[in-house]
């Protein structure tokens, strides 16, 4: 295991790695699913994880370590659907290829709040349904989601959760 690249190639890759976007780093199309992101992360880690490259001389090893840090960074952003979406928006807006994790997290948080309801009533019934689901009381969850949907009929998250709750009962 470890990388097949020659030391000079490793050093060259480390130099350009900041010009690559996270999809390029993981060799993924922008449409990749979360499962594919995870597989790609494992694949890249096999090659670049510092544990797998202990035997390299110091210069290429430092370079590998930098690449490995970018691989995990890419994974940390792309493995979460909301962060992934925020990153795609960033790329499309041409705002740079690296995204601060804190920023990705903040964006994801904003999306999550929106998904959980734009209206106070929608949010309230949705949070009741969440508590029901944790208790595994799916019938009650379905009732609360139904109520949430009367306030926000087009909320995709509510719809998906309702379907899931019904499947469970």
């Amino acid at each position: 295991m470890g990388t097949d690249l020659a030391p000079t190639e490793i050093i060259a890759l480390a130099e350009i790695v900041d010009d690559l976007d996270y999809f390029q780093i993981l060799h993924l199309p922008r449409s990749a699913s979360i499962g594919e992101v995870r597989k790609a992360f494992h694949f890249s880690s096999r090659a670049f994880h510092p544990d797998a490259n202990r035997h390299l001389p110091s210069e290429p090893r430092c370079a590998i370590e930098k690449i490995a840090r970018r691989v995990t960074e890419a994974y940390s952003v792309l493995r979460d659907p909301r962060r992934n979406r925020a990153y795609l928006q960033r790329l499309e807006a041409g705002k740079g290829k690296r995204m601060q994790l804190a920023e990705a997290q903040a964006e994801a948080g904003r999306q999550a709040v929106e998904e959980k309801g734009r209206t106070p009533q929608g949010r309230q019934y949705y949070s009741l349904a969440e508590a029901d689901t944790r208790r595994r009381d799916f019938a009650a969850a379905a009732r609360n989601l139904q109520m949430a949907l009367t306030f926000e009929p087009d909320n995709e998250l509510f719809k998906a959760q309702l379907k899931e709750a019904r499947d469970q009962t």
């Binding site: 510092p50 370590e65 930098k66 490995a68 840090r69 970018r70 995990t72 960074e73 994974y75 940390s76 601060q100 994790l101 804190a102 997290q105």
Partner: peptide, 17 residues
């Protein structure tokens, strides 16, 4: 204290400010 790297982030990792 403002977070730069949240807990449960995979390592090795690096963030620059």
């Amino acid at each position: 204290a403002e977070p730069v790297i949240e807990r449960n982030t995979p390592v090795p990792i690096e963030q620059t400010r």
